[in-house]
Design a protein around this nucleic acid. Structure first.
Lengths: 148, 148
DNA sequence: AATCAAAATTGTAATGATTACAATTTTACA
DNA sequence: TGTAAAATTGTAATCATTACAATTTTGATT
């Protein structure tokens, strides 16, 4: 933490530790709630500030795969992300040679410093529900579509 | 438009047309402002509703490359996106074989229905400023970092 | 150990994009 | 032309995030 130029305060250590212990890409609220018990005086502003600081220092990844809440990832190794459209969970996706290949596809003159691959679909746990969900959704869509 | 199950109202045609004429990935506000002159009664709610409808029907792409505003793209062919960290402009990036390759990298059991590759960096126009900007930024960062 | 300035933390208020919703207008068909 | 459904509109509410001022903590110095 010090090698990042981040003074390791009680709160900062706890927040970074929470991210490392919970690699499920938690939201700001999740981090705050998860630490409120052990640090009752913790302020949500501190969580916001610290996460932003850690992102700026390159210790943490910021994910915008969710329209609503930003998510954070202490795993900064090259990988993609997957969000289940049913349960909302976010998972890691291994990126083989693709991870680096994509940066090479550069139109003349652009400088790419970072990239993120976001995938969406249905996770393992939700897949069984998909059949039903798709049918229900399709039915509703069809009904709406006929007149829309 | 009808083949999508979308009733082609004046507003919907105008919004879809605006997106097709302005492939710079406009925000909701940009669409609304761009059409306000020709359709003075246009409501921003209608822009929100219509864009969401077009996305659901697969006629338009929703981009979450920007933390603040959602952006929309009438170009639904396979390509990636690039956002300049200085001027904020969003550009298309060609995706050769990479575009399809990434979908194949699937952990057992996941169903991927859509994917987006977001890149960030410095665009052609801003690159000359980067040298200066980086120096200035580096100086500020260094000063902050020393004590942070 | 006491002092003091800088940095970190906290809590509250403001911001701003998006959504909810009720009212009005338009559309399409009998 | 009448009428019900759908589309549009405008306003109010929501909610994540940011701004900011006040308080607390830290670390160096005496």
């Amino acid at each position: 933490m010090e090698q990042l130029g981040v003074k390791p305060s009680l709160q900062r250590i706890a927040i970074m530790g929470y991210l490392m212990d919970n690699l499920v890409h938690p939201t700001v609220d999740a981090v705050f709630s998860g630490l409120s018990d052990s640090i009752p005086t913790l302020s949500k502003t501190t969580v916001y500030n610290t996460l932003k600081l850690l992102v700026r220092r390159g210790a943490v990844l910021e994910l915008n795969i969710d329209d609503k809440n930003v998510r954070y990832d202490a795993n900064i190794s090259s990988h993609a992300h997957f969000k289940c459209k049913l349960c909302g969970s976010v998972h890691d996706l291994p990126l083989g040679s693709v991870g680096e290949a994509k940066v090479e596809v550069i139109p003349s003159g652009f400088v790419i410093t970072e990239s993120q691959l976001y995938c969406k679909g249905y996770c393992n746990a939700c897949k069984p529900e998909v059949e039903v969900a798709v049918d229900a959704e399709a039915a509703v869509e069809a009904a709406v579509e006929l007149s829309a």
